[in-house]
Structures are given as C-alpha cells and as structure tokens.
Design a binder for these strands. Structure first.
Lengths: 219, 219
DNA sequence: CGCGGCCGTGTTGTGCACAACCGCCAACTC
DNA sequence: GAGTTGGCGGTTGTGCACAACACGGCCGCG
C-alpha cells in the first residue's frame, strides 16, 4: 500500500487519517475506554498535532471518541442497551435503500455480489472474528453503493460505524461459526436477489438480517 | 441574553459558534457562494482562528461550507435539483419519527403546540420571510423533540439544516402569504393531532407537508 | 494588440510554544 | 487517623507565526 501520489492533498490526508482511525476504533484495535494520545498519533502519521486534531474532531462529531480538556481523548464505549434506537434507525434506513433511487444493476455489480459469496465461503472455512468484521464492513459499503441517494449513503455510513463495534464486542458471548454461517447466508440471499435485479429484495434481506442480528445480540 | 456564567466551557463555546454560524447560513445572512473570512469571524467572536476553525470544520462536515486552500471558505449553494434526494430522505425520516420511540405527550407539549399555532397566526397577520424561516426552524426542533430516538433526532437535524435554505432561496418565486397560510394550517393540524395524543398522525402530517412543500418548490 | 510569465496580495493549512485544566499523590494539619 | 491542600506530570485547548497555495493584475515581449 505504498502511495503512488507523492504529494498528498490536505483533504486526502485528512480523509486517510480519519478513515484509518475509524477502522482501528471499529476493529477494536483501540478498545472502548482506552486513551488516544494526540502527540503519539501525530508522530505515527508523520504530521503535527494540528491536522490530526482535525481528524479527531470529526471522529468526535461522529460519536466515536470523546475529548476532555486536561484528561485525554477517550474511545467511547457502546452497548446494545443505549444503541438499540440507533439499530432501529439503521434497520429502517436499510429498507429505504431499496425504495429510494436504487441504482441500475450492472454485470459488474452482480460480479461483486458473487465475489462476496466466495469471500464468505472462504471465511466459513477458516473463521476469524476480525477478518469477519472487515468483510462485513466491505459488504456494508457495497450495499451502500446500491443507492444513488447520497444523503442516505452518508447517513447509513455514519450510523453503521457508530454501531459496528457492538457485534465485535459481543462475539465472545456468541458462536463465531454460527455467525459466519448466518452471514454467508445473507451474502447468498443478497447475491440471488441482485442476480434477479431486485434491489428492493436485497434491501429487505438486509433489513431482516439487521433485525435478527439485534435479536441475537440482545438474547 | 447576557450569560450568567462568566467562564464559558470550550465545548459550550464551540457549540455557540457553530450554531450561530449555522443559523446565519440557513437564514441567508451569508448568501450561498459568498466567502467567509476566518480572521474576520475570529475577531467578531473575540477568539483566535483556531477555535473558530473547529466550528468551521464541523460546518464543512455538515456540507454547509467548503474550504479551499489558498482560496477561501465558501458557503455552499443548494438547489432543489441536487437536493431532491435529500428531501426524499427527510420525508421518510419524518414519518419514522411517529413510529420509532415517540415520547409520551405531556400537557407541556400540548401547550407548546398551541403556542406555535398562536405564533403562526401572528405571522399570518404580518408575513415576513425571515421571521417565517426562524419559526419554521423552531417548529422543526419541536417536532424533533417528539421522538426519544437520539440518532433519528440528530440525523433529521443534519438533513434539515442542509436543505433549510432552499425554501428561503425560492420564496421570491412563491407567494409568501400562501406559504404562511399553508404553514399555519400545518401547525393547526399538528396541534390537533398532539391534543389527541396521536404522534403518529403528527408525523404523517409533517411527512405530507414536506412532500407538498417539495412539490411547490419544484413546480 | 495579444499573450505569457512574474509577482503581489490575500486566503487557508501547518507547526510550535504556551496556557488551561485534570487526576494523582504526598505532605501537612487537626 | 482522617481530611485537606499543595504541587507535579501529563493532557487537550489556544494563539501566533509562517508555509503553501490560488487568483488577479502588471509588465515585458513578440
């Protein structure tokens, strides 16, 4: 992943910092409650505190971290109890994706859906929680790309990253291979719907799986 | 509004800056396309550029302004053509507010709803576009307070402020007194629904009015 | 007259030093 | 011994100076 572009735009740099940190938080590289040091992070990314703080500011606005003057920058904790309502909203938005300006299904999209199935099968043969979370994240982005509604995409993404950690945090209480199997099933169902050019069905499948996932996490 | 607290928290100061600037943008005090000067604004608010930039960063993430290195900070333009999809989403979210965790209707809420009707009547007797926009903004916040779903509130607010300017920008092509009359009607219908403790109805009314408003703006 | 390069001016981005602040611990007082 | 207070180390917030950059006007040249 050596960047080909020698000079990086300020905006691109910000995006990179933000996305990287967001990934780390949502993959639990930074555990909830742990403290981030602006200075350390700035040193790691080879910049000064100022641009890094711009990225942290965005993360704070997104609810992933919380800064306190004189104390530090703390990764927020999440649990289903307080995130239940957010989950509800995510579920509804997932359904909306099928009704609001769905894209036209191209062979490229169908191919990608099948790729995800293949990827899911591979995952099933060698379950790994972190890798699962990563694929799930990719699959979410794929799903978001199926609507042309920019606002819906942005909103869904915001809410997704806000709740993404709940699953990974609860995986020890669940059965990983069960989860992988269920996820694979979702991938297969989605691929079938997309092959039939039926994005409404794909959205409903996703909606159903969000609902069932919440139920499993609650129970 | 002289603040009793002598020392203002950093977070409170940020919120104040952000909310003030957001209001000005959405009330068209800062016209779309106009340029904001960090230095001038910092001087006005009696601070340095650094905290002000924090507020601008949030506004940029919300899509209300756009900064370009070496050029300036430009207030984004909005028109219905590109905001149509955002409007769609707002409409759907408004409906959701009635189904997802509505609050329990208290006498206080009923009183507030009636206050809005009174306020709307006063507005009808002396139409003023800017004052209308202001009341509309207050009414939006009132509507948002009727759901306990924090994520839904936050999302709706984000989208509201992103599209709020469209109406004010188009008012010259519309009939102001017509608009005021329609708004008053919405206020009355909403008050009636709330008096009946029927928040689902209130949400559907709002949904309908968003839809009709978009239609008027388009036509 | 047209045009291309250069520079001046104004803007945002960055780095750095310092201020403001919090939590902890030890010393002190009663 | 319990409570209090002062200081210390470490963190984020702020201010300022400078770098990077874009735009437009100006001058020289063809």
């Amino acid at each position: 992943m050596s960047d080909g572009s020698q000079t990086e735009d300020a905006r691109a740099r910000l995006t990179r910092l933000h996305d990287t940190l967001r990934s780390r938080i949502c993959l639990l590289d930074y555990a909830p409650g742990s403290r981030l040091s602006e200075e350390t992070l700035a040193a790691e990314f080879g910049t000064s505190r100022t641009p890094l703080r711009r990225a942290l500011a965005r993360l704070e606005d997104e609810g992933l971290i919380q800064t306190q003057h004189g104390v530090g920058t703390i990764v927020t904790d999440v649990d289903l109890a307080e995130m239940g309502r957010t989950y509800e909203l995510r579920r509804e938005l997932a359904g909306l994706a099928g009704r609001l300006s769905p894209v036209e299904v191209t062979p490229d999209i169908v191919a990608k859906a099948r790729e995800f199935v293949a990827c899911g099968r591979q995952l099933a043969s060698r379950p790994d929680a972190r890798e699962f979370a990563r694929v799930n994240m990719d699959f979410f982005h794929f799903g978001a790309s199926l609507t042309q509604n920019e606002a819906l995409r942005e909103t869904s993404e915001r809410l997704y990253y806000r709740t993404a950690r709940i699953w990974l945090k609860s995986i020890s209480r669940l059965d990983l291979s069960d989860e992988v199997r269920i996820f694979l099933s979702e991938l297969e169902q989605t691929a079938a719907a997309i092959e039939g050019h039926d994005l409404l069905a794909a959205a409903l499948i996703r909606q159903a799986h969000i609902s069932m996932c919440e139920a499993r996490l609650t129970g």
